[in-house]
């Protein structure tokens, strides 16, 4: 089938005859509003972008670490306070 004879091609050919959309000047106050909004956000440098990403990743890693080690920490707390023995005192007491 010759593509120029398809329904779509005939329709598109006809639609192309319609006047093309024209651009228009900015409405009153539009440029001022957009310019003000653009600067109220502050500059986004590559450094700032990476800083936010790094902060997000660090938070995620910290949360995963806490989740993984939570059981061990709780168990250790249940076992009571840590007792540290002084090896020198032990040797002296045995002699």
């Amino acid at each position: 089938m010759n593509p120029t004879h398809t329904a779509w091609n005939r329709l598109a050919t006809s639609a192309r005859l319609a006047p093309a959309a024209a651009g228009s000047p900015a409405p009153f106050g539009f440029a001022t509003r957009v310019a003000a909004r653009a600067f109220e956000r502050g500059p986004t440098s590559l450094y700032a972008l990476f800083s936010w990403r790094a902060l997000g990743m660090a938070t995620l890693i910290a949360a995963v670490c806490v989740a993984v080690n939570l059981n061990s920490v709780l168990k250790a707390r249940e076992d009571g306070p840590l007792t540290v023995t002084d090896p020198v005192a032990e040797v002296l007491s045995q002699t």
Partner: peptide, 24 residues
């Protein structure tokens, strides 16, 4: 250099182009 007046001029300059793309 964060000149707001220049930003406004840039928007006014480019608006016909942008509005034509959106309308099309």
């Amino acid at each position: 250099a964060r000149d707001q007046i220049a930003a406004r001029e840039l928007v006014e300059h480019l608006h016909p182009l942008v509005s034509r793309i959106v309308r099309t």
